[in-house]
Amino acid sequence: MTNYRRDRTPGSTWFFTLNLADRSSRLLTERIDLLRTSFRAGMRRHPWCIDAIVILPDHLHALCTLPPGDNDYATRWRQIKSGFSRALPHGESISGSRRSKGERGIWQRRFWEHRIRDENDFERHVDYIHHNPRKHGHVERVADWPWSSFHRYVKAGILPADWAGNGDDIDIGAGER
């Protein structure tokens, strides 16, 4: 098995992207209650702070901070992904490689992570997360996407409800994911 080099700085904040294996699927939003249940179960076993998150039909982005001294984000995502997959009925297309390992064909095997370096990096990734449904054409206004921490930021008074209304007033330079 390939040994990927991953930054394992304990207690850090991370930006993550996780994708479904079938990128044409709408499974994450169609089965949002199962995904929420999987997040809650995983967080009971291994708490962490979800600073920002957006769930799209075929992928999600999250900005999460690990507890001091903890660097095990991989276990958290494995538990969330496997809990979600186990709750779904079988029937997805599964490659021979996955079948031989007893895996489902719901998620892409890996995920993408980036350790947040400073406050500016944090803010750019929060903006990227909240703007993502608009970027993908799911909504015209960020406020219209229901599966986003954007609403929590508005309720806390951090962002106005009309933030990024036309998309011209923010820097979403976190990158294309």
Rank of each mutant, 00 (worst) to 15 (best):
Y128D: 03
A143C: 15
R110Y: 07
H125K: 11
H130W: 03
A87S: 14
G96H: 12
S100M: 15
W163S: 02
K135M: 12
H138R: 12
F111R: 06
V126Y: 05
E92Q: 11
G96E: 09
R124H: 13
R110N: 10
E119V: 07
V139P: 02
S95G: 08
G105I: 05
I94W: 06
A164P: 02
E123S: 12
S95I: 07
W145E: 01
P146N: 04
G91R: 11
P89L: 01
N120A: 10
F150Q: 04
V139I: 01
V154G: 07
F150Y: 06
K135Q: 15
S93N: 15
S95W: 03
A161V: 11
P133S: 06
E119Y: 04
E140D: 14
K155S: 13
R99Y: 15
G105T: 04
S82Q: 15
E92F: 11
E103V: 09
P160H: 13
A143L: 05
H136P: 01
A161C: 03
P133V: 01
D162P: 01
R124C: 14
I116R: 02
V126T: 11
E113F: 00
G105K: 04
D162F: 04
W112C: 05
R117M: 04
P160S: 09
H130N: 02
I80A: 08
R98E: 07
R98L: 07
R99M: 11
H151V: 10
A164T: 00
A156L: 12
R110H: 11
K155G: 12
W145T: 06
E123Y: 14
R117L: 09
V142I: 08
A143F: 02
S93D: 14
W107A: 00
R86F: 12
Y128H: 11
V142R: 01
K101P: 04
R152M: 11
A164W: 00
W147Q: 02
R124G: 09
W147D: 11
E119N: 09
A164V: 00
R124I: 10
H138A: 03
E123P: 01
G102A: 00
H125P: 09
Y153F: 13
R86V: 07
A87H: 14
K155M: 10
S149Y: 07
G137A: 00
A161H: 14
A156S: 12
H125I: 03
P146S: 00
P146H: 04
D118F: 13
R104C: 07
D127C: 08
A143T: 15
V142S: 01
R115T: 02
V154T: 08
